[in-house]
Nucleic acid binder design. Sequence first.
DNA 1: GCAAAAGTGTTATCCCTACACCCATGA
DNA 2: TCATGGGTGTAGGGATAACACTTTTGC
Lengths: 221, 221
Amino acid sequence: MYQYQHPHPAVTTDIVLFTIGQQQLKCLLIRRKHEPYKDSWALPGGFVGMDEDLEASALRELREETGITGVNLEQLHSFGRPGRDPRERVITIAYYALVPDTGLPIRAASDAGEVAWFGLDDSPPLAFDHEAIVAMARQRLVSRLHCSTIALQFMPEKFTLGELQGVYEIIQGGAVDRRNFRKRVLARHCLKDSGETRRNGKHRPARLYTCVSMDTVEVNK
Amino acid sequence: MYQYQHPHPAVTTDIVLFTIGQQQLKCLLIRRKHEPYKDSWALPGGFVGMDEDLEASALRELREETGITGVNLEQLHSFGRPGRDPRERVITIAYYALVPDTGLPIRAASDAGEVAWFGLDDSPPLAFDHEAIVAMARQRLVSRLHCSTIALQFMPEKFTLGELQGVYEIIQGGAVDRRNFRKRVLARHCLKDSGETRRNGKHRPARLYTCVSMDTVEVNK
DNA sequence: GCAAAAGTGTTATCCCTACACCCATGA
DNA sequence: TCATGGGTGTAGGGATAACACTTTTGC
């Protein structure tokens, strides 16, 4: 038992993890094993440890519930409407992150009975206010797309410009002029020609590029 | 006494309230009446009520400690490093807001022994990690200045374009071309010519403008 | 040779910047 | 009449957007 002179809310972190697959923007969800919202889908997350920094808590929950490590979390927003959790007052600090699509080792563990990627426009009803959290994260993602190099976090180590363009087109939902896109993205000097090429089908092979640096460089002039 | 099965952190809100005065960007601080950091300057803020939304808590603290009401709060970031408060684990959700300079009715109340505006480059050492919070709020303010109409929140109901330009120059710390500034700001169609003018000195009177809408319109294309 | 994506350059447009002069007022 | 800030327009440059053809490969 823990006692306090004044009432204290519980504090959690939740993580909106995005990826791109099957021509869709997807988000990682877990199926809850316990009440409340037992068997509902929800964002990975959980209670903050008393000696744990907020971001560390989010990383730990993500690792424990999905086995995913090494992502670059950004704080999104804190949600604390009274009543958002039926058990007690819970304030959550939401983070988001972007990971490449390739071969994600997802395992269900701890509180999560099941883990899966869902297309954002094709996802089940979520527990708590998690739909609002996902919506805000998506909005943030779209607005950062143009003034930062955030989209590179979706890419594997080596990728073609066509693949990168595809990511932009999926997120913003619309076609992009290939020549202008290449000029713009190469002008940022965030990509390095790896020298290699990749044949992807019955057509000319594409050059493979690498990120010069993993930092999300803001370009908001 | 309040008892929980698991330990709970305390949760507070803190508010970075900016204004412009004496050709400076200023921030509202209170002098603490109690330990810890007794007699130090700190941001207004305090513990979140158990049935109170986060923004409502920030508004209440601001009202109780400074008498200021009716500001437009934006959530800044949550800070939760273990040890940032010597008493116990405290996670704070920081907000920021901008208010006009004119005739602010500031009164000290409740936990605040004293309330005052401080120029940002001329402020005393702050309690807790409040200097980091102010620094982040300032950064946010600068970066929003160009892609939003946030600066209008510094203005009184009626103001001249020269006054608005002065606000921009103070925040970003540099001169702005008057003609280009006027074209840009008028092109946003957020200002309405009130028809009135104001004589401010021994020179031609200036037109007074009003905000068309109080919303902070983002213009990030 | 044909389908399919990769790769490349030029032109027109728009937006932003730089820049100089007259206006209305108070002293 | 002079000092002070208010008010206005234009020309040049840089960035962005529109646009079509050749290349390399698999079938």
